[in-house]
Amino acid sequence: MIITFCILSVFIIIGAVSTIRLHNIVYAVFSLMLLFSAIAGIFLLLMAEFVAVAQILIYLGAVGVLILFAVMLTHSVTGSSGKNIYSNGWGWGLLLSLSILFATLLPAIYFSDFPSDPAVEIIEPSVKKLGMEMMHSCVPAMWLIAILLTAALIGGIVIAAPPQKR
């Protein structure tokens, strides 16, 4: 269990660091795909198989392809991202994120008392219970998500469409 977690976390860290440090954008997106697959693996490790499948279906299958399409459509031929890929204020940005990690997140984890074993050893992965839960107590959330996705769909198409010729 720990070995699997270590292997998956190595893949996650490699994927994440390559995403922010690679010069070639398409390679950065491919390492993001590696990251998403490893995160799906972590979900499987934590016995949440429906979420792992949803992660693969949505992030790898749909959002990944969307990002690649956007890279395609905004790719400048001269490759201006070749020389300097870091923005002007990169020092302050790095300082801010390091301080959030070391001053906020890690102390919160360190000083809290967390269980070292899961409370329930074996969870039966059950899609039926998830569906019942979703349709009984989370119906308003489902409606909101439906409206949100419809709005995002229509809005995305309208924003990205080429300007109409009069």
């Binding site: 198989e49 499948v53 949803a54 279906l57 790898l60 299958g61 392809v65 992965p125």
Partner: peptide, 24 residues
């Protein structure tokens, strides 16, 4: 598996990633 059909469709959607890689 309990959600085998969804797994199948999820895995089938990875084909588009490879097609992009081939084309690019």
């Amino acid at each position: 598996i309990d959600s085998a059909l969804l797994f199948f469709f999820a895995i089938g959607s990875i084909v588009s990633l490879s097609v992009f890689m081939a084309g690019w």
